[in-house]
Computed example of a mutant assay.
Amino acid sequence: MKRYKLTTLLCLCLSTASWALSNDTEQPIYIDSDNQELDIQNNVVTFTGNVILRQGSIDIRADKVVVTRPGGQEGKETIDAYGNPATFHQVMDDGKPIDGAAKKMRYETATEFLKMTEEAVLIQEGSEIKGNVISYRIDQQKLVAESGKKQRVTTILQPNQLNNDKK
C-alpha cells in the first residue's frame, strides 16, 4: 500500500512541465536515486544520493532533488536540485543541446521560472554565461544573469553563433 501511495504521489507531483523548453514535458519522468523519502502530509518527495532525473531529452544530475507540491495543487510544483554542482542537459527544438550547472537549481512549474544559484553557468554551442545567479523565464524566453560579491557576469560568444544570427 505504501509503495502504491508513493508511486501515485510521484506521478502527480511530476506530471506537469518541469525544466522543459520543448515537448519534453509530454514525456514520462524517470528518477533514479540511492534513497528517497516521502512526506505525504506536506506533499514533499526527497531523492538523495546520485540522483538522475530524465524526461525526454532532459537529463538532470544532482546530489539531492526535492519535489514539493504546495497544498497538493497540481501544476504548482517546485523542483529543487542541489549538487556540487547539480547539472542539466537538454536538446532544444532546433536540435542544439544546452547544458547548465550550479550548486542550486529551482524550477517553479506554475510560472515556468528556472533559477540557478552559486557558480551558475549555461553553455550552448561553446558560448556560455557565468554568474552567481542565472534566472530564466522559460515562457517569455528572458534570461537575467547577476554577479556575486567581487565577481562579474561573464559571457563568451562564439563567432559562429554571431554569424548565424546575421543570416
Rank of each mutant, 00 (worst) to 15 (best):
P28R: 04
Q55S: 05
T68E: 15
V45H: 03
K76G: 02
D39G: 05
I40M: 08
V44S: 01
I60G: 04
Q41V: 10
I52Q: 06
D34K: 08
I58V: 12
N35W: 12
T78W: 09
I60R: 03
G49T: 08
V66S: 03
V51T: 07
I29V: 15
N43D: 07
L38S: 06
I79F: 06
A62W: 05
Q41H: 14
I60W: 04
V67K: 02
K64V: 05
N50I: 06
L53R: 00
D80Q: 10
G71D: 14
N23C: 09
Q27E: 11
D80S: 12
D34Y: 10
D34Q: 14
L53H: 00
A81K: 04
T68I: 10
Q27H: 04
N43E: 05
S57N: 12
P70N: 09
S33C: 12
I29F: 01
A62T: 06
R69W: 01
V51A: 04
V67W: 07
I40P: 01
R61M: 13
T25I: 00
Q36T: 08
G72E: 02
E26L: 10
T48H: 14
D59W: 06
G56W: 00
R61N: 13
D24P: 02
L53V: 14
N42C: 03
D34I: 07
Y30P: 00
Y82D: 12
D24W: 01
I52A: 11
Y30N: 14
Q41Y: 14
Y30W: 10
V45R: 02
R61G: 00
S22A: 15
D63P: 12
E74W: 04
Q27R: 12
D80G: 00
Q73E: 09
I52W: 05
D39Q: 07
D63Y: 08
Q41W: 09
R69C: 04
Y30V: 07
N43K: 13
I31H: 00
E37D: 13
N50T: 09
Q41F: 11
I52S: 11
S33W: 04
K64D: 06
Q27G: 06
Q73M: 10
K76E: 14
Q55H: 08
I79Q: 01
A62I: 11
D63S: 11
D39M: 10
E26P: 04
V65K: 02
A81R: 04
D80R: 13
T46C: 15
I40L: 11
I60Q: 03
N42Y: 15
E26M: 06
Q27P: 03
G75R: 05
Q27A: 06
S22W: 03
I40V: 08
I40F: 07
V51D: 04
R61W: 09
I60N: 04
I60C: 07
Q36P: 03
T78Y: 09
